[in-house]
């Protein structure tokens, strides 16, 4: 009978120094790349927000400046979205009552041409 060890002949001694190096360096570089992205995208927005705050403060709006980058709670966003949706739907309550039927143009193709039909019924007309 075939055993699991025969099906999966694991030989840990086959893992050499170079394999471990690749695994460790590889994983570290993946981490490093995403860590750098994390750093950049944590710092950059703060930098831009700071600039905006300074600009608004110069224009004399200290209170306005404090509002920069303030979080809008999800509930507020949802309420605004519902309000806009309801408002837009109400606009469609009264239709213009003008119905247009668009003519669909049928482009020519030899694949749908009557003259290439296998059975040309025109020939059977009496």
């Amino acid at each position: 009978m075939t055993t699991v060890a025969q099906l999966l002949p694991i030989d840990l001694s086959a893992i050499g120094k170079e394999h471990l190096t690749l695994a460790v360096i590889g994983y570290s570089v993946v981490f490093l790349s995403l860590f750098l992205l994390f750093l950049v995208f944590t710092v950059v927005p703060k930098f831009f927000t700071h600039n905006l705050r300074v600009k608004i403060q110069k224009e004399g709006g200290a209170e306005k400046a404090a509002l920069v980058n303030r979080m809008v709670p999800g509930e507020v966003s949802a309420a605004i979205a519902v309000a806009i949706s309801l408002y837009l739907e109400e606009l469609h309550d009264q239709e213009t009552a003008i119905l247009t039927i668009k003519k669909v143009g049928k482009s020519y193709s030899p694949w749908n041409s009557k003259i290439y039909n296998v059975i040309n019924f025109n020939g059977f007309q009496r």
Partner: peptide, 18 residues
Amino acid sequence: AAAQLGIFLTYLGAISLG
């Protein structure tokens, strides 16, 4: 990044399987 652990451990596993 953390969830890429499987890539590198499986790489070692495949080496050990020949």
